[in-house]
């Protein structure tokens, strides 16, 4: 599986869902307990193996954030605050407390969501999440600059195996347009402060939901040490490394990620999760 296809446009498999009057492109898999998957810099492609694998654990709902993929971005919808309110509304609609899986930028949204709507979340899985600042030294950058970094360097930092990096020359026109649209949206939401909320770290201790923090061992966008600090700030969190993965373990090691999620769900006391 090359990432070129992972970044490809969703085919007819995606459906449109209206949440709080906002149209979302959504991919759905499986049945049972709801699992909301919040994507990172690019939406998950229809054939991303992690979707089917998570679909074996429950009812997967994987929306494309407004401005990404096929989801339109409403006028004025420009902040992480908007994204958190939107997904809080989606969780309200779902009703049954969901497992929320957030990757990279989506991990930031998931952490904010856990503070905004804890009663709607049964378990939280953060995969290389962004969203907080750890270092006290202002000259230290915790999170790679997603926008003013050469693509060659972004690829080196993002992938355990750089051969999995997107090959722009091989991607279809539609996939490139989708990727550029995602970059625009990510930049709008996350330019400044770059990919974090300065106040989030201080409030993570309020998350009481069972939480699993997964980190690609080779991630050089945000290092495993940042991940350990993230997990340490959440009293209920466990931390695990994913071998042979960089910033996108859900794409590079979907089986290992899914096994960790399954074991995490099984560890919770009976009745904690609805099957």
């Amino acid at each position: 599986m090359s990432v070129t296809s992972l970044l490809a446009p969703s085919a007819e498999g995606a459906t449109a869902r209206s949440v709080a009057g906002i149209t979302l492109e959504v991919q759905e898999r499986g049945a049972g307990r709801p699992i909301l998957v919040l994507h990172g810099p690019d939406p998950l492609a229809e054939d991303a193996p992690v979707l089917d694998r998570l679909g074996a654990l429950g009812s997967v709902i994987a929306p494309s954030h407004p401005g990404f993929g096929g989801s339109p971005r409403p006028e004025g919808f420009e902040t992480v605050y908007d994204l958190v309110q939107l997904y809080a509304a989606l969780l309200d609609e779902i009703g049954t407390p969901a497992v929320v899986v957030g990757c990279s930028f989506g991990g930031w949204i998931a952490a904010e969501l856990a503070l905004a709507s804890p009663q709607r979340i049964a378990g939280l899985v953060l995969v290389d999440p962004l969203g907080i600042r750890i270092s006290a030294d202002p000259l230290t950058r915790d999170i790679m600059d997603f926008f003013n970094t050469h693509p060659r360097e972004i690829n080196r930092r993002s992938w355990h195996d750089p051969a999995r990096a997107p090959d722009y020359d091989a991607m279809s026109d539609a996939a490139l347009i989708r990727h550029a649209r995602a970059r625009d949206a990510l930049c709008l939401y996350g330019w400044d402060p770059h990919m974090y909320n300065p106040r989030l770290h201080a409030w993570l201790h309020r998350i009481k939901i069972p939480t699993l923090v997964l980190w690609g061992e080779s991630d050089a966008v945000v290092t495993p040490d940042y991940g350990r600090a993230y997990a340490a700030a959440i009293p209920s969190a466990a931390f695990a490394l994913i071998a042979d993965a960089g910033h996108h373990p859900e794409l590079e090691q979907p089986a290992a990620v899914t096994e960790q999620v399954a074991a995490f769900l099984n560890r919770q006391p009976a009745g904690e999760f609805v099957r």
Partner: peptide, 9 residues
């Protein structure tokens, strides 16, 4: 974004 096929390749 529609310019991406020219700009990215």
């Amino acid at each position: 974004p529609e310019a991406a096929p020219v700009l990215y390749r």
